[in-house]
Amino acid sequence: MWHARVVKARTSAAELVEKGHVRVNGVRETSPGHAIKIGDVLTIALDRAVRVMKVIAFSERRGDASAARVLYEELQARNS
């Protein structure tokens, strides 16, 4: 989530997972170290929105917003 710029810090990503705000392929994930594969669908509950994203690529480094955008396909974005 950090590489894809969904959150600003790795600690924020880990916290979202630990608090149960992330689902991987519809299953709630609570382990920040859980391996993600290309094709996995992440459902992420943020402060005021729910994002559903399909992983389509990985990156070794965190890039700018345009580089991050090619790592996933937005399936649904819903404001609360």
Rank of each mutant, 00 (worst) to 15 (best):
G26T: 08
G33N: 11
G20V: 05
V17L: 00
P32F: 07
V17A: 07
A9I: 00
A13R: 02
A13Q: 02
E18Y: 02
G26M: 10
T30H: 01
A4I: 01
E15Y: 13
A4S: 13
G26V: 10
S31N: 15
V24E: 02
V17Y: 05
G26P: 06
V27P: 01
V27F: 09
H21P: 01
E29W: 04
G20I: 10
V7S: 06
R28M: 13
E18K: 14
L16C: 07
R5C: 03
K37F: 06
K37H: 03
I36A: 02
V6S: 01
K19Q: 15
S31I: 15
E29S: 13
A4Y: 04
H21M: 13
E29R: 11
R5A: 00
G26E: 08
L16Y: 09
H3A: 05
G33Y: 00
A4T: 03
G33V: 06
V22K: 04
E29L: 05
E18F: 02
M1C: 11
W2N: 14
L16P: 08
M1E: 04
A9N: 12
V6L: 14
G20K: 07
S12A: 10
T30R: 11
V22F: 01
E29G: 03
S31V: 14
I36F: 11
G20F: 02
W2Y: 15
K19V: 10
K37P: 01
A35P: 09
W2E: 04
I38M: 05
G26A: 10
S12G: 03
M1S: 08
R23M: 09
I38L: 00
T30V: 11
H3R: 11
G33A: 14
K19P: 02
K8Y: 01
A13E: 07
L16I: 04
K8R: 08
G33I: 00
G26H: 09
A14T: 00
A13G: 11
V22M: 08
E29T: 13
K37Y: 02
P32A: 10
K37I: 04
N25V: 03
V27Y: 04
W2K: 12
I36Q: 05
H21Y: 13
N25C: 04
I38P: 01
V6H: 12
T30G: 06
V24T: 01
V17H: 01
